[in-house]
Computed example of a mutant assay.
Amino acid sequence: MNNRHTASNPSDFPSRSNPSNSSGEARRSDADIEEIARLLPPPTPRGLPHEQHLHHKERLMRRIDRDQAARTDRTDQARSFGPRPARRLLRPALLVPVTALALGAILTTGIVLTTDDDAPATAATGQHDARDMKPAAALLDQISAAAGKGDAQKVRDDQFLYTRAKVREADLTSGKAVVSPVRDVESWASQQPGPLHKLGLTRENGETLPINAQLGDTDGTPEGLDRPTYHWLSSLPTDPDKLLAHLYAKTPESDEAERDQAVFDRIGSLLGGVMPPKTAAALYRAAAKIPGVTKLPTAKDLTGRTGVAIARDDTTFGARTEWVFDPQDFTFLGSRSYLFKDTRYGKAGTLMSAQAVIDHAVVDKAGRAPAASRES
């Protein structure tokens, strides 16, 4: 048992400055101070942005699930108690917003890159110029107009939204960013309207896993920002001001993330899949109203496709998030996040996360890719 020094008033503690105290009492006072310091918890380090925290929490929980499943297999084989129980699998952190870490999550002058080839060739200083807002708003207006020309789809409740993407991300478990290889990831998101415990499927490296309800959703995850079904997206306000107000209201407050960045990341999390044209158009116009949004005339996605980009710097965490678009038809190509200054996680230019959207469609069955995707 640890002994804590307690006292009802300050006179109960030996004073090092009191000449009546002996040297032994002074040494005991030093020992008391050291003991109290040892018992106190260490200072809490500044946390990760909310999306990144969830990302790494889910990675950890999935690793725990795999370890538990492996131990159960060994126990079953040794004791012959029959088949092991199904393992609990949490929603994977794929296609999350390339956040300004972010995760989530995902480039402009002066800092030379120190990492991989998929990171941008230059990095920003993190300083915003008010003049940058007009080019960003003009570009987002063009992107919005192009998105609004698409055809609305009829998506049934029994169907799935399919997305195939190439993904790369940094693992921060060690305290430093360790960038993963590029991975092919497929997902099938259920369009059932009610709260669900099984949200769909994901496939990576030949392994198909269920997407379970979000952490904490004991009654299932309902439609919403964390499970954006086509029907839910269609219900969002199409007036940019009302939509932006709605997103600010629905994005939780956090002491660990810039408010504007959190909403920017929320919009980013909705991009890259099947979406009602009017909703897509409104989202881009709403994004233009977020402070700090800038335009990049040239950027590349994870596969090397060159486009134009909309970006925002999270100055709190020293990371920039980019949305990359085809320069001809303004199709969303992907997103990436990287450090624009040296931080505890790595040097300026270090890639935090990136994704490139390869295909998306509406399909009738989870686990089955559309023909066009199978042929590519």
Rank of each mutant, 00 (worst) to 15 (best):
G346S: 12
H128N: 10
I36K: 12
G367S: 08
P85H: 11
R320F: 02
L333E: 06
P370Q: 07
P92L: 09
L243N: 01
K250H: 15
R63W: 10
R227K: 13
K278G: 03
A366R: 05
G224Q: 09
D171I: 05
L302M: 04
R227T: 09
Y338F: 10
M61Q: 13
P370A: 05
T72F: 06
S11G: 10
G273L: 01
T44V: 15
G346V: 07
L236E: 04
N18R: 14
G268C: 03
G307I: 06
A354D: 09
L54A: 06
M352A: 11
A31D: 05
G194A: 15
G200T: 02
T208R: 09
R156N: 15
A366T: 04
L40S: 11
G82Q: 01
I106C: 03
L247M: 02
I267W: 02
Q68W: 02
Q153L: 15
L196V: 04
D239H: 03
P240G: 02
D117R: 12
K134S: 12
I358Y: 08
V167D: 10
L243W: 00
G307S: 06
R320S: 08
P135H: 01
A102T: 12
A319S: 12
A100V: 10
L94K: 01
S235E: 14
Y230M: 04
A177L: 07
M61H: 11
P45L: 09
Q328D: 15
W188T: 08
